[in-house]
Write a protein that binds this DNA or RNA. Structure first.
Length: 387
DNA sequence: TCTGGGGTCCTAGGACCC
DNA sequence: TCTGGGGTCCTAGGACCC
């Protein structure tokens, strides 16, 4: 089954588009190149501000001074992406806009435009699969690519092919990306960050101690803020320090599964294949309100939003051809505490009214005295609809 | 004036069945 | 009268990722 010849090394690439949303926006607004720009905020308000700035002009001719600024925004929301110029000010993904406005009030604020990002996402992924067909989607702006059997994939450890992919994407779309090539996904993911933006990094097994072990544990994809804190509490900050711990010790502290995984990860071991296809497990829609709502006092408004979310999930299911039988809701209260309730029905559905009915039962099981800031509807246990 | 939206996977307890 | 085991499904919460 394998056509690997003697001496063929497993070479896996991780490709990450640089500041993807922001870079796509700069294609439309080249006059903003080099300036601090952030994408995010409540869609409607930011959209309107931009439309006012545009007036009757073509997009490329809106004067820089006319663009909406962070300091003029007063709604809730977070930054999804910031240009590198904005990152100089300490502004980046997931930062609240109000906090960001203090750090960089003059930054230009643009609304998210998912349709546009999806378009460019499909474009750069098509370029990749033309060159190297075994590609795994990791969201809108990232992929893994198996270079192992691709012509040129072994040359200079994958650098030649990485350069070709990177250059072709740039020539066709005008967008830059960063690529890491390594023996597996775990190391490739770390490598792609080494020379960001518009960089390439090549990692071999023998680079583990010199290039990987000095890194913070947090750089391992799968070790988040909580686990990182716990590790620090145990005196472990770097991957090298993690590698010094015994398997049993890690299992004692983190459980069988996580402990064993960490043990391997610290040694650069990762046998996960590059997966080209996957089935969705759930689909959901959620929304944070412009102001916190009360279940009784804002009943009508809440009801409309609830129904709309159910209709959106139903439309998503239908569009993609799936049915689900576990219907759930998610609430977030004004103190940011969240809760979920779900119920599995005995029939699979993609019908908005059915979803609304069951989601309504879920809502009844949740405490509703406190004001809400978010409501979500989820459908899980998906199966393909018969065509 | 903090803190989006769309996902995946894991854990853990209880129900229920053999 | 002591307390048996798996296995699977359901539910809730939490960590993590993009």
């Amino acid at each position: 089954m394998s056509t690997k010849s003697e001496g063929t090394l497993r070479r896996i690439a991780h490709l990450d588009m640089d500041a993807f949303y922001a870079s796509v926006e700069l294609l439309r607004y080249p006059q903003l190149k080099g300036l601090p720009v952030v994408i995010g905020g409540a869609r409607r308000e930011v959209d309107e501000a931009l439309r006012r700035a545009q007036g009757e002009r073509p997009l490329g001719q809106i004067p820089v001074d006319a663009f909406p600024r962070l300091k003029d925004y007063s709604g809730r929301g977070v930054i999804t992406t910031a240009t590198y110029a904005a990152r100089q000010f300490g502004v980046g993904s997931a930062l609240g806009l109000m906090k960001a406005a203090k750090l960089c009030p003059q930054a230009i604020l643009l609304p998210v435009d998912f349709a546009q990002y999806r378009h460019y996402s499909q474009a750069f992924k098509a370029i990749i699969t033309d060159i190297a067909p075994v590609m795994e989607n990791r969201g809108i702006d990232e992929v893994y690519i198996d270079f192992t059997l691709v012509p040129g994939g072994q040359r200079e450890g994958g650098r030649v092919l990485a350069r070709l992919v990177q250059k072709t994407i740039y020539d066709v779309t005008g967008l830059t990306c960063s690529v890491g090539v390594a023996p597996n996904k775990l190391l490739a993911k770390m490598a792609s960050e080494f020379n960001k933006p518009n960089g390439i990094a090549i990692v071999f097994e023998e680079d583990l101690q010199t290039n990987i072990w000095p890194l913070a544990c947090r750089k391992i994809n799968g070790i988040g803020p909580k686990t990182d804190e716990k590790l620090k509490g145990l005196g472990i900050s770097t991957i090298g320090e993690l590698a010094q711990r015994e398997l049993d010790w890690l299992i004692d502290h983190f459980g069988q599964k996580t402990g064993a995984w960490m043990f391997d990860a610290a040694r650069g071991i990762d046998n996960r294949p590059v997966t080209t296809e996957s089935e969705p497990v759930s689909m959901s829609r959620e929304t944070t309100f412009e102001r916190d709502l009360h279940a009784v006092r804002d009943k009508a408004e809440l009801g409309l939003i609830f129904t709309r979310l159910c209709e959106q999930v139903a439309a998503d299911l239908q569009r993609h051809g799936y049915l689900g039988k576990t219907i759930g809701i998610k609430l977030r209260y004004d103190d940011f505490k969240s809760l979920t309730r779900d119920q599995t029905s005995d029939v699979f559905t993609a019908d908005a009214r059915t979803i609304r009915k069951i989601a309504g039962l879920c809502l009844k099981r949740a405490p509703l005295e406190q004001r809400l800031r978010l409501l979500g509807v989820r459908v899980g246990s998906l199966v393909k609809a018969q065509p």
